[in-house]
Amino acid sequence: AVSDRLIGRKGVVMEAISPQNSALVKVDGETWRATSGTVLDVGEEVSVKAIEGVKLVVEKLE
């Protein structure tokens, strides 16, 4: 799938994300809905860990 190429890519949080709420991230110039197990604020850099349906699963870039 096209989205599989995004695993391992870096992105930027466009809307705050919490474990209860998905929000938008920008990866390679494209906007995607994403979820995370932690709270992520706007502007934080993230890494794509997986794809669940049409959502990216991201975590904060260390």
Rank of each mutant, 00 (worst) to 15 (best):
A1F: 12
A1Y: 12
V2R: 09
S3Y: 12
D4G: 10
R5T: 08
R5F: 08
R5L: 08
L6Q: 00
I7N: 03
I7D: 01
G8Q: 02
R9F: 07
R9M: 14
R9P: 01
K10H: 10
K10A: 06
K10S: 07
G11V: 03
G11I: 01
V12N: 02
V13R: 00
V13W: 02
V13A: 03
E15H: 08
I17K: 13
I17A: 15
I17N: 14
I17E: 15
I17G: 15
I17F: 13
S18T: 12
S18Q: 08
Q20E: 11
Q20I: 09
Q20W: 12
N21H: 12
S22G: 11
S22A: 11
A23S: 07
L24R: 05
K26W: 14
K26R: 12
V27S: 02
D28Y: 03
D28N: 07
G29I: 01
E30V: 10
E30H: 09
E30Q: 11
W32F: 14
W32P: 00
R33V: 14
R33S: 12
T35I: 14
G37I: 13
G37P: 10
T38G: 09
T38D: 14
T38S: 12
V39K: 12
V39E: 10
V39T: 12
L40S: 02
L40D: 01
L40G: 01
D41S: 14
V42K: 07
G43S: 02
G43Y: 04
E44Q: 11
E44M: 14
E45Y: 13
V46W: 03
V46R: 00
V48M: 01
K49W: 06
K49M: 12
A50C: 08
A50Q: 05
A50H: 06
A50L: 06
A50I: 04
A50D: 06
I51Y: 06
I51P: 00
E52I: 13
G53M: 03
G53H: 04
G53Q: 04
K55S: 13
L56P: 00
L56F: 03
V57P: 00
E59I: 10
K60N: 04
K60S: 07
L61K: 05
